[in-house]
Amino acid sequence: MAKKICILALITILFSLGSPWVNPAFASLPNGNRLKDPYAILRNSLPIDQKELRELQNKLEDTSEDLRGSRWSAISKATSRSQFLVSNKKNQILDSMPAENKENASNLLSKLKEELDELRQIANEKNKVSFLDVRRQSLKTIDDLESLLITKNFPYQIPSEYNNLPRLLGRANVEIKTSKGSMNAIIDGYNAPLTAGAFIDLSMKGFYDGLPINRAEEFFILQTGDPKGETIGYIDPDNNELRRVPLEIRTSSLEDTLYGETFEDVGLYTETPVLPFATLGTLGWAHSDTDLNDGSSQFFFFLYEAELNPAGRNLIDGRNAAFGYVIEGSEILNQLGVDDKIISITVLNGSENLKLKA
């Protein structure tokens, strides 16, 4: 029996089209397409606080708007500022690194300097295609630098009442094979450790292999993970009971991750989660209409449509847990329907971050 997430597509559409005002949360979101870029969302959601790298990252990401308008003067200024940060703030960046990662970070900064020098030259030549290619390389290097800042200690508290649940204490990369093609996704255990842990655990068990797409709503969601038979989720063989994963949402305005509560429950009516439903292929965890904490195995792909589900104004943020993003192959999502299925989900890396219990 398929379990529906507690969202109605029609309400979402009416809300989006019928509201002339701008939601304060939406108005405060980053400029450009940072919020719609899964790589940018994942970078911004890392549990780090290094202002020079963050400024460098944001400077490069924000060139998207200038590229669309062919504002090469602004692009050159942004790349020049990026070069300055790498050359003149190198010591501050290295000082923030754990001792064991300083040498690696120094090598990456040298690599980044070369990439930014090339980027500045391309900006002078006004070559959009080459600029995007080298910018992508530069942001990947920044990704690698930021990952070196993360310590081995998990940064957030998980309530002890969930000690028996799997948790992903970091990130994992998965390949999702479907009857229409394959996708690559990053699963984020930093900001949704129990949700991501349940997904990775079931993926490694082969639970999703062969399961159909059991719900497909155009411009909204594709849902799967409903096992055959009467059960609506994963039955734990140790106790023969349904594994229940609580609603789990993290927001930057609160120190602790929310468990078992929506944003409305705690009065956060204009909040945007750290992992927003803001891009095609956002992975979300399904729960029933009546219980926030009965999600077990079913998950969905969010079919982002800017006009119908604008970031910060859709009705999923704060009511369902996002736990990852498709980073490659998202174009096949618009080809999938209820006649299709998941062939397999393979964990490519990050399985060492999975702990079966506390």
Rank of each mutant, 00 (worst) to 15 (best):
N101P: 02
N101Q: 15
E103F: 11
N104P: 00
N104A: 14
A105L: 07
N107V: 09
N107R: 14
L109I: 14
S110E: 15
K111D: 13
K111A: 09
K113H: 11
L116W: 07
D117G: 14
D117P: 01
D117E: 13
D117V: 06
E118R: 04
L119P: 09
L119T: 07
R120F: 14
R120V: 05
Q121V: 13
I122R: 01
I122D: 08
I122N: 07
A123Q: 09
A123T: 08
A123F: 07
A123I: 08
K126E: 15
N127D: 15
K128H: 01
V129C: 00
V129Q: 04
S130L: 13
F131H: 09
L132M: 14
D133G: 00
V134Y: 04
R135A: 15
R135P: 00
R136M: 09
R136Q: 13
L139A: 09
L139D: 06
L139Q: 12
I142P: 04
I142W: 01
D143Q: 12
D143R: 02
D144M: 13
E146G: 06
S147D: 09
N153W: 00
Y156F: 15
Y156V: 01
Q157M: 12
S160D: 13
E161I: 14
Y162C: 10
Y162H: 13
N164P: 02
L165D: 11
P166M: 01
P166L: 01
R167T: 08
R167Q: 13
L168F: 04
L168P: 03
L169F: 05
L169I: 06
R171L: 01
R171P: 01
A172K: 02
A172W: 01
V174M: 12
E175M: 11
I176K: 03
K177C: 04
T178F: 04
T178H: 03
K180I: 05
K180F: 02
S182H: 03
M183H: 04
M183A: 05
A185G: 12
I187S: 08
I187C: 07
G189W: 06
Y190K: 02
Y190M: 05
N191K: 06
N191F: 01
A192H: 09
P193N: 03
T195M: 05
T195F: 03
T195Q: 06
A196T: 07
G197M: 08
G197W: 09
F199S: 01
I200F: 11
D201T: 11
D201W: 07
L202M: 12
